[in-house]
């Protein structure tokens, strides 16, 4: 009996210590709902390859992720927008120096219902629609029906990205704020007069009821589709953006290892399978510098070469 008690006590102790050990080593990733699925897949593959590694990926929106990083509640913040200067100030005030790594490229896709006759829009038309200046589909070549606007909630990086890079103005108050990319896709499937914006990874595979619009910056440049990888990578599709991860300071240990996996050929392949695009060379160089990796690539003029197609942040 006493022997048994001893064994139980030892087992319990081992379990307890094992648990605390595992808990302290879990990498917490939080933020963007656009990135959540693909980062979850990256984490699963990474954990299979790396015994003992533990990564927890949760959503909540880019703003929530960055706020968590600033409040030291997570290790990696997924963000589909650049960090704001006010957020950098808050982080600095808490002794955190946020570093950015670009893990994927997204072509923000404008989606409508399959039955909508409109196939293409210009960037300034999309902006006017979301600012509430264009309210009927007939104004952009469609049928005579009012436009139902679907967007994201204000903690979403995509919400901010649209506002600052496409609309250059404020959202009209009739915007329906959805909880995530998937909810926008669901709503557009049912709503013949709806318009929404989602990360390309969410639009690609559900083309039965929804239609991805071709978008042009101006008439002379022409219309391009976000599902054409060549047009996105060459920058012809006008609404592309880097998908970022922010880390508190230069990463080390397991966090660095995971990020390097994401940026490896294998990681980038997973990102492309999920519908997003692999990062181009200029971002690779930028990442190398952040991670302090010795690289054979030319490391000159790094920061200056990082230009987002629409706007650098």
């Amino acid at each position: 009996m006493r022997k048994n008690t001893g064994i139980i006590a030892v087992t319990l102790l081992a379990l307890l210590s094992g648990q605390t050990f595992a808990a302290s080593n879990t990498i917490q990733v939080k933020g963007s709902d656009t990135l959540i699925n693909v980062v979850q897949r990256l984490a699963e593959v990474y954990m299979q390859k790396t015994p003992g590694a533990s990564i927890a990926v949760t959503g909540g929106g880019s703003g929530t992720g960055i706020a968590a990083l600033v409040n030291k509640k997570c290790d990696i913040a997924n963000s589909s927008r650049g960090i704001k200067s006010s957020e950098v100030d808050q982080a600095n005030a808490k002794g955190i120096d946020p570093k950015r790594v670009v893990v994927a490229i997204d072509a923000l896709s404008i989606v409508v219902n399959r039955q909508n006759p409109v196939d293409r829009l210009k960037v300034d038309q999309i902006g006017a629609i979301y600012r509430g200046e264009i309210t009927n589909w007939s104004q952009v070549g469609g049928s005579n029906s009012p436009i139902a606007l679907y967007g994201r909630q204000s903690n979403s990086g995509t919400y901010d990205f649209m506002k600052e890079n496409v609309m250059k103005g404020e959202y009209v108050s009739t915007l329906k704020s959805m909880n995530g990319n998937a909810q926008i896709v669901e709503a557009i499937k049912q709503d013949v007069s709806g318009i929404g914006y989602v990360g390309v990874g969410y639009a690609k595979d559900v083309s039965a009821d929804i239609k991805i619009l071709e978008v042009a910056l101006t008439d002379t440049i022409g219309y391009y589709s976000p599902i054409n990888a060549l047009d996105v990578k060459s920058g012809k599709y006008p609404i592309t953006r880097p998908l970022n991860q922010y880390i508190a300071g230069t990463p080390g240990g397991q966090i660095k290892d995971f990020i390097e996996f994401e940026l490896s050929k294998e990681g980038q392949d997973i990102i492309e399978q999920d519908g997003f695009f692999a990062i181009p060379e200029e971002y690779q160089r930028y990442n190398d510098q952040v991670l302090g990796r010795s690289s054979l690539r030319d490391r000159g003029a790094i920061a200056a070469s990082v230009n987002d197609p629409l706007k650098s942040d």
Binding site: G61, Q90, T174, K176
Partner: peptide, 29 residues
Amino acid sequence: GCALAMPKSFLDSVQTMTATIAIELGEVP
């Protein structure tokens, strides 16, 4: 539906006070 426009009927999307707090408190500085 969470739209901040003034509702004109029961068939308009609305955003309640509780929903606003829930959406925004998570990311507000």
